[in-house]
Design a binder for these strands. Structure first.
Lengths: 106, 106
DNA sequence: ATCAATTATATCAAATTTGATATGTAAATC
DNA sequence: GATTTACATATCAAATTTGATATAATTGAT
């Protein structure tokens, strides 16, 4: 099960790199619910390597890799905020009542 | 410093209970950036006590109280998701590049 | 194909968060 | 003012996450 998700995520990552036109579409869907992808996206847009981001955050490359791994769920708000700050961004957390239309549609 | 924030938060909570008209205004501003207030708001709208929510989540009242305390910063995404589910809501996490207009304006 | 750079995975101690119990405080009702 | 109910605070062990090191795997360039 975890296996399947991993393979899917890996495949998606591959496709994203090969087919840029497909990228746009997937980004909106995937990255909306996947924190890892949000971090990867912002880091790449900032032109940073994992090591460079790690330095900015004050940690190690392997830890950034962990945060960016497809199935990681152990996030702490504190670490998310550290990474977020390093990426010159801000963290928005909303607890949205069921049935409410998501505002993440940009 | 932490003292001041605590007092302010306490005062705001008091006012919120006494003056319902002021409540609406503050809710939008405060609870937008404060997770604790978001949880309190949803729990109260669901008509639940801390103990009842704790039962739904599968934990104890004191732990819910901790999550709802003004200066708590130790949130884990896993616990936030548990609480969120119990409140029949979903958790939205967005890492927003600086300068981007917030979508939280409802 | 080799080499260098980047990213992924494994492991483990240290730090942090969670869950639980106990107890304190506040407000409302009787 | 005693009781009850709801919420707040303190504490500590257990569970989880983080940071760090080591190393494997992947990618890109020559």
């Amino acid at each position: 099960m975890k296996r399947i998700k991993d393979d899917l995520d890996r495949t998606i990552k591959k496709i994203l790199k090969e087919d840029p036109s497909f990228k746009e579409e997937l980004n909106k869907a995937e990255r909306a619910w996947n924190i890892a992808f949000q971090i990867i996206d912002l880091r790449e847009k900032a032109g940073l390597t994992q090591r460079q981001l790690a330095d900015l955050v004050g940690t190690k490359q392997s830890n950034i890799a962990r945060l960016e791994s497809a199935d990681y769920t152990g996030y702490t708000l504190k670490t998310l905020e550290k990474v977020t700050r390093a990426l010159k961004s801000r963290l928005e957390i909303r607890i949205v009542p069921a049935g409410t239309r998501s505002l993440a549609h940009q």
